[in-house]
């Protein structure tokens, strides 16, 4: 169970980091009115947002195998990132559109380079959006079951939900251990929810209304 927990932490942490990073970059780019094909990209990501995982699930196994990452934590991190990116991009794009253009101008005048501008100005300003995206992505990836079930064969690489099912089947009547396992999945999300319930609820609303 401990190993599953650590796997889940890595998968969730890295997916969320990648989603925020790539999502904010792309969202910022798409917030510019003159970005080429802007409407098309936004529509594409909207479709990506509503696309069920089953649409791309089946060939992913083969693809991950070809990339040589099948049966490693990357086999989850990469698809999870892709799956959660569309919402992040749309949210960030909407957020940055409302950002005053002076900010960038001022930065340019100060001679701030792109990378610095991004990390020291843009992300801090976008903090509410970042919190929202981190909250939704973490919840989604921490609890994801279907892909984790199909893409991970090696028991050492299983994440909590899949590991939990395997454990339940093997130790059906070991109730104390089962209860411990169930809490290991649920307590972190409940705890995070107890602390960040405002951000999470804001995230749900933002994600829903977008």
């Amino acid at each position: 169970m401990g190993a599953y927990f650590i796997n889940s932490l890595w998968v969730t942490g890295l997916s969320a980091a990648a989603v925020v990073c790539f999502g904010a970059w792309a969202g910022f780019a798409l917030s510019k009115a003159r970005f080429p094909l802007r409407k098309f990209w936004l529509a594409l990501f909207f479709i990506g947002m509503i696309l069920p995982v089953q649409s791309y699930l089946i060939p992913l196994t083969g693809l991950l195998e070809k990339l040589g990452v099948h049966d490693s934590l990357w086999a989850l991190i990469l698809p999870y990132t892709a799956q959660n990116l569309p919402v992040a991009i749309l949210l960030f794009a909407a957020f940055f559109v409302s950002l005053p253009a002076e900010l960038e101008e001022a930065a340019k005048l100060d001679g701030v380079r792109t990378a610095r501008f991004y990390f020291s100005i843009l992300l801090p300003v976008a903090r509410p959006a970042v919190a929202t995206i981190v909250a939704i992505t973490c919840l989604n990836t921490w609890n994801e079951f279907l892909m984790a079930m199909l893409f991970i064969v090696d028991p050492a690489m299983k994440t909590l939900p899949v590991g939990m099912i395997a454990f339940e089947q093997a130790h059906n009547t070991d109730y104390p251990a089962l209860l411990a396992g169930l809490s290991l999945i649920s307590v972190p999300t409940l705890l995070v929810y107890a602390i960040f319930n405002k951000q999470i609820i804001r995230g749900v609303i933002a994600g829903a209304v977008k």
Binding site: H70, V153, A166, Q169
Partner: peptide, 20 residues
Amino acid sequence: ISNSEVYNTVGWRLQFQGRN
């Protein structure tokens, strides 16, 4: 170690897709 029902229906074939 797999549960035998899971191994019998799914795992027996999927294990050869893994990198390990």
